[in-house]
Design a protein around this nucleic acid. Sequence first.
DNA 1: CTAGAACCTGACGTTGACGTGAGGTGCAAG
DNA 2: CTTGCACCTCACGTCAACGTCAGGTTCTAG
Lengths: 118, 118
Amino acid sequence: MRIGQLARRSGVSVRALRYYEEQRLLESARTPGGQRDYPDEALERVQLIQDLFAAGLSSRTVVELLPCVSTGVATPAMLDQLIVERDRIAARIEDLTRAKTKLGRVIENVTAANVAQD
Amino acid sequence: MRIGQLARRSGVSVRALRYYEEQRLLESARTPGGQRDYPDEALERVQLIQDLFAAGLSSRTVVELLPCVSTGVATPAMLDQLIVERDRIAARIEDLTRAKTKLGRVIENVTAANVAQD
DNA sequence: CTAGAACCTGACGTTGACGTGAGGTGCAAG
DNA sequence: CTTGCACCTCACGTCAACGTCAGGTTCTAG
């Protein structure tokens, strides 16, 4: 599969895929002409990378954790890192939940005020 | 209260406070000598700004929503914006929850493998 | 065989929320 | 009066994950 097709299938840009390769997150074979040629599994890998980015992990962290995320094998240091990241995500979820609750209350107040005004 | 004290109390940097003023998120009175002089309520306001930033709102959005968040009065457009942001936060929470679950499973797998190895 | 779509490698631009240094001023203590 | 810390205003630097443009090459359809 070539880069354009992988981009369309995964929903990320061609530029992003080249960036992933630059960051050693994603490898590619090359055609004799020098064009990238991806195996089918690349699609899942790109989606995994996106999930980890969406979780707020940096590319440096992702490149460190990708092996064990996809193979299930980890050194103790990697396990520690995994736990650190999971806890960071959990804390972030709490922050966001508080913010959502706060906005929800504001919305309720405003709505109540507008209804009263009618 | 001067800027250094507000910075220490709120936990944000002096530079950040000046940036908030630049972005019209936070006003300040000035001493005859030109130094910033904050009222006590500024502390809560800074914390509110931090909460909204932590929720992923941009300074532009915060400056638009701050009035109604602190006063409870909003135009229909502001209410729409509030709802958009709340929903965005909710979607983000779902993303993060999925990522956390995924990492949690990886951690379980790795731990199980290590225990089996012992 | 040729048009043109898709691809390639640099390499500079973008965005947001500040960090950081330069060069100068305000203010309370001794 | 002067030491010295806190403060002031520019104004350029940072970092990540790409966007975008330039100038050239490869591949595929007709």
